[in-house]
Amino acid sequence: MREEHARAVVSALHEAGFDFAVTLPATQVHTLQSALARDPAFVTVSAANEGEGAAICAGAWMGGRTPCMVIETSGILVATYALLRCHATFGIPTLLLSTYRGELGEQEWYAVQTGAALADLLHAMRIPSRIVHDPADAPATLLEARRSMDASLYPVSVVLGGRITRT
């Protein structure tokens, strides 16, 4: 992800009221994660796996923060247990801001299958999701994600498409 796009997404997250971010390794958004870590407006946590990260976000939300988790596509798979056993069970929102490995244009064989399962997996967990292909759409989408979090008390997903993250 280009630096200017990363800065734009951080600015959009801030504008939408997010102030707590859990990050895990994600090649395509490392510039975004670095920008978040540098921004004093965010408490950033580097977790050991995405299930743990989701649980940390849940605790942060109950403590008054507005959390997001910035992760690789495969991280959604890792986080499923926490998202269902914690967030869905108790009614706790968190933004899942992920990459979209495996979508059209993917060049790595090992990333194809996780991306192929992403939409159905989110649907099975009843997590609303939108794919963003144009950086200009990020601010409005993140604002809508925040509105849905407050209204539903449930996780929401914003997927950053490859046209944003691969460049």
Partner: peptide, 24 residues
Amino acid sequence: NLYTMGMGLVTPVALGLALALPRR
């Protein structure tokens, strides 16, 4: 008291709370 958090999630949820409320 928040009861019956799932296995493997108790200390992570508590960490999130502690980071959000550093004086509590």
